[in-house]
Amino acid sequence: MLKINNLHAKVESKDILKGINLEVNPGEVHAIMGPNGSGKSTLASVLAGRADYEVTEGSVEFMGKELLEMSPEDRAREGIFLAFQYPVEIPGVSTTNFLKTALNEVRKYRGQDPIDAVSFLNLVKEKSKLVEIDPSLLKRSLNEGFSGGEKKRNEVFQMAMLEPKLALLDETDSGLDIDALRIVANGVNKLKNKDNAVIVVTHYQRLLDYIVPDFVHVLYNGKIVKSGTKELALELEEKGYDWIKNPVSA
């Protein structure tokens, strides 16, 4: 599904990614861990197409297409979803209205007719139940005055609505208490199936208690320095990131 090959990227002339290689197949959950400043969020942003980042080398293939040549909106329409670490607030635009526009754009790209009002409302009902989000929140302006937990839950709700092939969760656990974390993780788990994939970017192991990864990769200084199974995350938790920073013990 996703093949990242020797990806280099910089922001404002500072090299952040220095040769990432990663392959993700349908049905898989990958966790990307690493200390602050290792390039985890940059990787998610580059895949989603944020303009501040410049790719200097390497390629990314998504569903057989060259991802880096597509506009951010086309990447989204192809099925890439980024759950933002810091979701923006848009005054005056309700979540419902926002998602209807988004969904219809995706449908148009796929040659489908716009969704009718009844089907859309049913979908909202079904998915809001699935991710346990209060439907009254959805009528309010997108994320405006939402708590940190509500914003993250709204990200997962949007993911449920748009049904992406590949979801990138960028530090979705940051700022969440343990109950909110459980609800958000449950939502992600319920959306998992054999045809889609998830990349979880996280600093801490605790999210991985709920979203259990098939693979764990440790990013350090712009490169994946270690890959393994979920046990690697536990080992990291125990030994700390200094363990991988020291090349001798790695």
């Binding site: 951010p72 909106e73 933002f84 979701p87 926002f98 988004a102 754009e105 949007q158």
Partner: peptide, 9 residues
């Protein structure tokens, strides 16, 4: 960018 990422040009 947030809008773009949801498929809205």
């Amino acid at each position: 960018f947030y809008c773009n990422q949801r498929g809205i040009a």
